[in-house]
Every structure is written in C-alpha cells, then in structure tokens.
Design a protein around this nucleic acid. Structure first.
Lengths: 336, 336
DNA sequence: TTGTAGGCGTTATCAG
DNA sequence: CTGATAACGCCTACAA
C-alpha cells in the first residue's frame, strides 16, 4: 500500500507482523510489552527508518511538539541568548522552537496569547522577563493545559515552573566592588517601574550601600527603561548633579553603554573620571571601550534548564543559577 | 456531540445545515460556491467563533503552518533583525515562526535539515546568509516540497525565491566616502573566504579604488571571519604596516568594533588617527564610541518581504533592497 | 501481553 | 454547486 514518502506505523506493523497498537506501544515506551516483541518491532523501525509523524501525533494527542518562547523583552541580545539556550536544551529531542513576541502594552495581549496557545496547542512555553512576572499569563497557560516555566530574577513560582537568578545578591556584590575601589558617590540607573528585576537589583544596591553606612539619595537615582537611549538620558541627569558621581551602576548593559556614551559626550574619561558597571554580560559588554565591568546573568544556561523542565518530568533540573561579577576595564578608583 | 473545547467543522456544518466539505470550501475560498451558501456558513462561523484546527489541517494537507528560519549566522543581532522582520511579514496570518540554527561545518548538516523538513513539514523556510549561498540546501528544500526564499548580497536564484541587497554598490559608496574625505591608504578587513557577501563587498571596494586610480595591495587586506575577535586581529595586522593606513573598512560591524578596539589598544584616536567604516548597521554600530559610520543592510525589511514571498503566491513583493551609507562619527579626514 | 474499533478535525475523491 | 465516504497517521478504550 505504501507507495511514496516516509514509512508509517502501518508499514512497521505489517512488516513486524503485529498490530499498529503494538508499534504505538513501542514508540511510547509502554511497559506492557514482551521484550521479544519490542525487539522485533524496534528492528523493523530501524530498518525502515521509521519516525512517527508529529502532525498525526499532535492531532491525536491534542498537543503539538512545539516549545514556545513568549517574550516582550527590549534587549535583542538577551532574547538571542535565551533562544540559544532553549535550543541547547531541546537538542536531540523531537521538539522545535517557536518564537512568539507579544506586546505587553496591547489590551488584546492576553486574548492573542490565548488564541496562539489554543490553536497551536504548544507543548509548553518559556516566559521571559518581564512578562514572566505577570501572574495572569501564567494562569492562562495553566488553564489551557500548556506547561510553562518562568524565568526571573527571584523565585516567582514553584521550582518546577521556575528558573531563577538572584539579582539582589549579585548587584550587592557589584556595589561592594565599587565601594571597595573607594567610590562613595555612586549613581544608580534603575530599570522600568514594575519590573521585578529592576526592584531586585535596586534592593541589592541599597543593601550594599547600607552595609557600608551609606544611603541612596534621590539625586543619585535615575529611572531607565533598559534601553540605550534611556541609559544615556539617565546618565546625563546623574552627571548634572554637583558633586558629580564618581561611579554609576546601570541595571543592564544596554543602559551602561548609553551611560558610557553620555560620559564621553561630556568629555569624561572612563574609568578615570567615571567608573561604570552594567548587568547581563551581553555581547556588547566585552566589545565596548573600555570593556565593561558587568554582572553575568546566565541567560543561556537558565534557558537550557527551562527547556528541559518543560519536556522532562524529572525534577533533576536545577532551579537556581548564580550571577557573577565580571571585572573588566570600566572600573577604577575615583580620582578625587 | 460537542461537549468541551473549541467548535469544530462539524458543529459549523450542523448549524449551517450543510456538509463538512462545504464548510471546508468556505474556509479555503473555493470559487465553486453559491454566494448565498457562503454567506450562511460564514455567519455560523462568526457566531461560533470557529477557527480551523491547524493540527488537523497539517495532517490532511501534509504540510504544517510553520515558517522556518534556517541559519548559521555568527551575528546574533542580525539574526534577531531577521526574526523580527519575518514576524512582521507573518503578522495577522495563521503561521508561526520556527527557529532552526544549523551547523554549516557538521558533516550531517544536510541530513539533519532533511529530517526537520520531512518530519515537521514546514510550509517554507527562509535561508539566511551564509547558508543561503549553498545550492545543495536549496535543492534539498525543493526536493522535499518545501518552499524557500534565500536572502543574500546578490541575486542567487529566481526572484520568487530571493530577496537581495546589492552589497557591491553599497560598499563602493562607502569606499568613495573615505576617498572623498581624503584617505588614500585604506585597509580592508574582509569576510570569510567562500562567503558571497565577502566576495561582493571586496569587489565593490576594489571597484571604488580603481575608479580613483588606486589599487588594493595585499598589505592593505586582512582576512576576517565576521567576528569581533577576528576584526581585532585583522586590524592589528593592518596597523602594523608602515606607513599605517589612515582608514579601515571592515566587512561587518562586529569586525569594525574589533578594529576600534585594536586602535584604542595602541593609543590611536578614532576618527582622528584612524577612520573606520563597518557594514550592517546592527545595533552595536550606534552604541559604540564614536558612533560607527556604516552601511545599512536592511535585514528586517528584507526578511519581512521574504516571509510574504513564502506565504503568498502573488509576485508583488519586491526582490531588491538597496543598502545605504549611514554617516556617523567614525570618519574624519586623515591627519597626515 | 496483544488486538480491534473508533475517534482526533480536516481535506480529497467522485458521484449526484 | 453539494455531499457521502474515505483518507491522513496516530492514540485511547475496551475486549480478548
């Protein structure tokens, strides 16, 4: 009967002299099988080069073999890192990666997402920050029977549904690094209001200052939006203060790059006149001049773990991923 | 019969008092339909909020509603731009974007790709450079009945299967810009051997020099690999020459950033001691200091057009996309 | 432990 | 123009 194209479960069944269902059991690792039968079927499968058809499986199981990346992240580099991490985690499996950016601000966002999840019946999705912080989205996934794992700067969900860094500790370490270099007037470029990551990072920064007996005055804080332009503007505001800060911590590398730009624009040398620390260790950090001291956010590793959590049942995949300070060339002791 | 979940084609057929096939014809815009019947069915569809199930369609049509991005591109930013462009082109359709990086160097590359295309039955794929230049891959897609569009620096295929820039012309323009600024000793950091884009860009560069009565000596050329480190090393080699070049053109921004690094490392000021031009206008270009003069490669626009070519039949989508010189701060007249 | 019948939701065939 | 009927390839339930 089979003329062209790939072999189907029927071909395997016929050649192995068993029923379709038995082949199906072999494919799905059913325990109710004679070892002998299994061996025979597996031999035919190998011989034929048979691979189950994902479309048919998707229809019967009402579930696709697709893992989605749902995000609304302004940082292209971070998104790429996460994609690569997910692909690391998916390598060797039958799953494919579907990319699905959404617009957090759109009023129809939840409905759009519902439509995708309902129609494509994704096996699972990885929620990147900042939308990973949105409980409504997590509840939607759950209601639609779509597995999810959230990626975040702190534990926002059960470990099975979470991969988390500890930004508070990491940023405190970065601030301590500046303090140890002798800085006392340190500006802080924050992330957008409502971002958990922004909250955690600021908390860590303040904690480190407090431990050194310093307070974070309002004049030392400028709000940013995780974008280059935002960092530029925030740094400009910070550098207008008198006395000027001798160091700036920016809540991501993109903004740190903007701060570097702003410093250069007013003739300040980095790190001699101004030290800068960023966060993420995205590709840009090492490529700036001077190379940017930053905090490494292990996005790729975390994403790989998240992908494995989505497709495996075992709880052997870690949940916590430490960030680490990466000292490079953008920090020096203050001049004055 | 229908208890839970979404309405199916059966529900629509029953309520509209027609057969499944008629509903199917409405969905697929069959011309053989009474306008009256169509209207009635469409009303029921709207009322029920019925949406065809993609898994069932995929099974019946032997073709998934997935568009793939197949790439092996070292530049994360470029890949992101292309993804965003594809999503632009796919917006409002039922298609989803699947990301599929492959390893050009792996001996099993073609087999891996064949497996994905056979199993997932992608509707179509966008081939990014440099693998878009590989005819074997294009032939594989064709043999498997998978539509494809290639993205490249020159016309490599029929217009229906191509979106192309004209790098030769664009690079000639960049070289002319340096010449017009007074530069005569211009170093060239090339792309990897075997890349069509590298070939085109070098040809454009040489043409512009020739038009000014200059030749490109071997000492002025350094091979790069489109990476930051490669650009750094190539620039170092170029700057070892005596007399030193007063300007460098790098075949992409990543390498230009590396060249900037190398210049800084040996105390050269950019653009005063050394002018630099890159290629791509990726995000990093505007974020460097000084902002990098570069050639804008319209990756996002091209990718959007490619996506539309993949899903539409009409030949109304353009094939050629001009690149343009973006003057910023990394070029100045030579000092000496 | 294995097989049979029926369903998942859609499209293709071919007769009316 | 329209509608039974049979694929598409796999899985679940139930029976043997």
């Amino acid at each position: 009967m089979r003329s062209s194209g790939q072999p189907t479960i029927n071909d395997v069944a016929r050649l192995a002299g068993v029923s379709k269902k038995t082949v199906s059991r072999v494919i799905n690792d059913s325990p109710l099988l004679h070892a002998e039968t299994r061996r025979r079927v597996e031999a035919v499968i190998r011989e034929l080069g048979y691979v189950p058809n994902p479309q048919a499986r998707a229809l019967a199981l009402r579930r696709n073999f697709l893992i989605g990346l749902v995000h609304d992240n302004p940082n292209a580099q971070t998104v790429m890192n996460v994609q690569q991490g997910m692909l690391d985690g998916l390598r060797g499996t039958e799953f494919e990666l579907v990319v699905r950016p959404i617009d957090r601000a759109a009023p129809t966002m939840l409905d759009d997402l519902r439509h995708v999840l309902e129609r494509q019946r994704l096996f699972g999705v990885l929620l990147m920050p900042p939308i990973s912080e949105d409980d409504a989205i997590a509840r939607l996934c759950e209601a639609l029977g779509c597995r999810y794992v959230r990626m975040g700067s702190a534990l926002l969900d059960t470990p099975a549904r979470m991969v988390a860094s500890n930004d508070r500790v990491a940023v405190a370490e970065a601030a301590a690094h500046l303090l140890a270099s002798g800085h006392r007037r340190i500006g802080f470029i924050g992330g957008p209001a409502g971002f958990r990551s922004a909250h955690e990072r600021r908390a860590g920064f303040e904690a480190a200052l407090a431990a050194a007996g310093l307070a974070l005055g309002e004049a030392q804080v400028a709000a940013g939006d995780y974008s280059f332009a935002g960092g530029q503007a925030a740094a400009a505001r910070l550098l207008d203060a008198d006395p000027q800060p001798t160091a700036i911590f920016a809540c991501n590398d993109e903004m740190a790059a903007g701060a570097l730009h702003a410093a250069r624009a007013r003739g300040l040398a980095v790190p001699d006149d101004l030290s800068i620390i960023g966060f993420d260790d995205s590709a840009i950090a090492a490529h700036l001049w001077p190379p940017l001291t930053t905090v490494r956010w292990p996005s790729r590793t975390m994403a790989a773990a998240a992908a494995r959590k989505l497709i495996e049942d075992e709880a052997t995949v870690p949940t916590h991923f430490p960030s680490a300070l990466i000292p490079r060339g953008s920090v020096a002791p203050p001049r004055c």
